[in-house]
Nucleic acid binder design. Structure first.
Length: 295
DNA sequence: ACCCAGGGTCGTC
DNA sequence: GACGACCCTGGG
């Protein structure tokens, strides 16, 4: 069948999609925006859990293969999750024209797509990200899912959904602590508590609000500062004109753009003005680029 | 063995 | 507005 210029064919336990451009699985899944996707050992495919599903995805001869899925899920979930309605060729072209630095960064990570992830899962994941390392964040998110998510099975292996707010709101402080997030367990527990008590309402957040308004709501939660809230806003796909500024981005912006030590606010302000509507994309191309260069 | 840093945030001065 | 503390772990 056809769906918005894409041709979808059924496989035995999955689907095959023709017509997708600009999609690098490696750059999309390994750029640090998500914590629940892992490369398979034996091939170039990735398996991950999102929106209560486990799927395996690979690209063969320009076709996107989604295993353990079907057309309905593709239309209802994955088409939006992988941001397939956005034209990344144009985004990359526009950003490449900005300067030599962006041209390099994009050449390096062409095909990187910003996923549109679940807001609550992002909230917990990025509270865990503060002063933490990516492998440790992944480990803790995995622990939370294993303990309190629902079990899924695929290819003889067990996977776990990220728990719902409902489930997590009934956990004790100790239960959350035992998931392994270190000192951040209090942030998570107290954030959930504020939401449960109705003092903060995540459900009213939507993309017709201004970035400032959304930031205000998110930052009223403990453990959520400017950087974490910008990540939540960007990686949920609410807004793309944000520029999460962490240590890596700070370093690369100072080195390549400012040539001197610069304050976070100044970097942000510059980037938002300079990259405009594409700031969020620029941030992720840069982050992926420098983080891999340092290795 | 010891030290340091990690997709920051918070409390205190 | 600057500064140190923070759980915990892997790597030098």
């Amino acid at each position: 069948m056809m769906y918005k210029n894409l041709e979808i064919d059924n496989l035995e336990n999955g689907i095959e999609i023709n017509g997708i451009k600009s999609f690098s699985l490696k750059d999309t899944f390994e750029c640090g925006q998500c914590f629940r996707w892992n490369k398979e050992e034996h091939n170039l495919s990735y398996t991950g859990v999102a929106f209560n599903r486990v799927i395996n995805i690979e690209i063969l001869k320009n076709k996107l293969i989604i295993n353990n899925s079907n057309t309905d899920d593709f239309i209802n979930i994955w088409y939006d999750y992988f941001h397939l309605w956005e034209d990344y060729e144009t985004i990359e072209k526009k950003l490449s024209k900005k300067d030599k630095i962006m041209r390099k960064a994009i050449k390096y990570s062409s095909g990187l797509r910003l996923l549109r992830q679940d807001l609550f899962e992002l909230l917990i994941s990025y509270i865990l990200s503060s002063n933490n390392r990516i492998p440790m964040i992944k480990k803790t998110v995995e622990n939370i899912s294993k303990k309190y998510g629902e079990k899924l099975e695929f290819n003889g292996k067990e996977y776990y959904t990220f728990p719902t707010f409902e489930v997590m709101s009934n956990l004790s402080e100790k239960e959350i602590k035992d998931c392994g997030g270190g000192f951040r367990y209090k942030y998570i527990y107290n954030s959930i508590k504020l939401i449960k008590e109705g003092k903060v309402n995540l459900n009213k957040i939507n993309n017709s609000m201004s970035i400032k308004e959304i930031r205000e709501i998110l930052m009223s939660l403990p453990g959520v500062g400017p950087k974490v809230s910008d990540c939540i806003i960007l990686f949920s796909g609410l807004k793309y004109k944000v520029f999460p500024t962490d240590v890596w981005i700070k370093r690369v912006m100072e080195e390549l753009y400012f040539k001197k030590e610069t304050k976070l606010n100044e970097i942000q302000e510059f980037a938002i003005n300079y990259f405009d509507d594409l700031a969020g994309f620029a941030q992720e191309y840069l982050f992926n680029y420098v983080r891999n260069l340092k290795k």
